[in-house]
Amino acid sequence: MAEQRQAVERPLSPHLQIYRVTITMAMSILHRIVGVALYVGTALVAWWLLATATGPDAYAAFQSVAGHWVGQIILFGYTWALLHHLFGGIRYLFWDEIVGLNNKTADIVSWLALIASLGGTVIVWGIVCTSRGVI
């Protein structure tokens, strides 16, 4: 007679409802999302460069979009995305060199990367607005 196998009790893999969201987890997910968003932003930079090279009419069309308040928000977000990805990449470089891998240091470095990206964005746009005479 054939022997029947009994089901082996195996642990279930945990899913997102079980994990507590940490700053390192959120920054890792955000780093990937921002990386994808940079592709779209780079297309806008390419449009700007092409419009600049093409002539005044093409540049005026670009400027009408970029100068609109929606365009300004997109440019602000692109600036933040660039700086966030930069500081997140620096954070990963530290981790590649086995520096700051304990939980407390990793959390601190993640917060510093987030604060630096936000602060850097405000500084860049402060300089832009000051040079334009907006402020």
Rank of each mutant, 00 (worst) to 15 (best):
V134A: 10
I135E: 12
R91H: 14
L112G: 07
E9P: 12
L118K: 00
S13T: 08
V45A: 07
Q72I: 15
A37N: 02
L44M: 10
E3G: 09
R32L: 05
A60N: 12
T52G: 14
D96W: 06
Q17L: 04
T54I: 06
V99C: 02
D57R: 06
G120I: 11
A26Q: 02
Q72C: 05
N102S: 07
S28L: 09
L83P: 03
T54W: 12
Y78N: 13
H31T: 07
Q63Y: 13
Y78T: 03
P11Q: 07
Y59M: 15
G133L: 03
W47N: 06
A53Q: 09
L82P: 00
T105A: 13
C129I: 10
Q72V: 13
A58E: 07
W69P: 15
H31Y: 09
W69K: 11
V128Q: 04
A7R: 13
A116W: 01
L82E: 07
I98D: 15
G89I: 03
A66V: 12
H31I: 01
A66T: 05
P14V: 00
I108N: 06
F62W: 13
S131P: 01
V34N: 02
G126Y: 05
E9C: 00
G133D: 08
Y78P: 06
V134R: 14
L44G: 11
A66N: 11
Q4Y: 12
V40R: 00
L38I: 07
A113P: 05
I108K: 09
I90Y: 09
H31P: 02
I73E: 02
G71D: 08
T52C: 07
N102Y: 03
R132L: 15
Q17G: 10
Y59F: 15
V34W: 03
A43S: 15
M27V: 05
L75T: 03
A106G: 01
L112F: 09
Q17W: 06
Q6E: 04
P14M: 03
A51R: 06
A116I: 01
G67W: 08
V40F: 13
W95R: 12
L75R: 12
A81W: 01
F94K: 10
A2L: 11
D107G: 06
M1L: 12
L112K: 12
L38N: 04
I123E: 08
V99A: 11
L49M: 14
I98N: 15
A26W: 05
L114R: 00
D96Q: 05
W125D: 11
R91Y: 10
R10K: 13
T54C: 04
I18C: 05
T105Y: 03
A106W: 03
Q63K: 12
Y59N: 10
V109M: 15
H68Q: 11
I18W: 06
I127M: 14
W80G: 14
L12F: 00
G67R: 10
L93T: 09
F62I: 08
H31E: 01
S13D: 00
V122H: 11
W125G: 13
Q63R: 15
I115V: 12
A116P: 03
L12T: 01
